[in-house]
């Protein structure tokens, strides 16, 4: 295992990180909070939710801390009025994108999007909410896929592909019409590749995939077991 040989400055604090670390990892190891949503340690970083963007000195562009590796003498700012404003706006956009009605959601109380809204004080959405109705797939005997609550973080796709090793799920179409798809757009019960392992429901940050008749607080995993993460790293 490599040593913490890279010296960088995060929010004015000098920290040390391994050369293979990302900014996010370095920050986390040093107790500096950066919000994330699509990121889950142990899965390939996706860089889609853009919540973990940080400012890197000398770079005019915002960088996703989950994908950007550390380098020597890098100066990172994780917390600035501009970044927090963007993060708030992103949370607003996610809340407005589909019908996120917390009061009637199975994930109420264990939802990462809801927590982020609380943390960043997103008390309303300045853009109008989308009330389009999306499909709910309840065909599977144990799981439910509710597209109304999906935020397209693709954690389910990645956990299915990378850890279960099946790749039952993918994204269909594109842009605002994107949605999670099972096999060739089949009802879940008819999927011939799904092993019903339930990992997708465990890693879903919101209430889009969940186990029937079980409280989400019981089935949800905010982190993958550490040994899994370690095995994936190797």
């Amino acid at each position: 295992m490599s040593e913490r040989t890279v010296k960088l400055v995060i929010d004015g604090r000098e920290v040390f990180a391994k050369p293979t670390d990302t900014i996010l990892k370095a920050a986390k190891d040093n107790g500096i909070y950066i919000p994330t949503l699509c990121y889950l340690e142990g899965l390939t970083a996706y860089g889609g939710c853009r919540l973990c963007v940080v400012e890197v000195k000398g770079n005019p562009k915002l960088m996703t801390s989950c994908t950007t590796p550390v380098s020597n003498n890098m100066e990172v700012i994780t917390n600035s009025p501009r970044l927090n404003k963007y993060r708030k706006q992103i949370i607003e956009l996610l809340l407005a994108e589909r019908t996120h009605t917390c009061s009637v959601c199975v994930a109420n109380g264990s939802c990462e999007l809801q927590e982020l809204a609380t943390r960043f004080g997103v008390d309303h959405t300045s853009v109008s909410r989308n009330w389009k109705r999306f499909e709910i797939d309840m065909t599977h005997e144990r799981f439910v896929l509710d597209h109304n609550r999906c935020i397209l973080c693709t954690r389910c796709i990645r956990v299915c592909d990378e850890i279960e090793g099946v790749h039952v799920l993918d994204v269909k179409r594109r842009g605002k019409d994107s949605s999670i798809v099972i096999d060739l757009d089949e009802p879940w019960a008819a999927s011939y590749s799904c092993t019903s392992c339930g990992k997708c429901s465990a890693v879903c940050p919101v209430g889009a995939i969940y186990v029937k008749l079980k409280p989400l607080s019981e089935t949800k995993k905010k982190e993958l077991p550490e040994f899994v993460v370690e095995r994936r790293r190797r």
Partner: peptide, 15 residues
């Protein structure tokens, strides 16, 4: 033409 991967572009442009 947005691919739908990142939130600002996917959810922001329709707004």
């Amino acid at each position: 033409e947005s691919c739908g991967k990142c939130v600002p572009c996917r959810a922001g442009l329709p707004k």
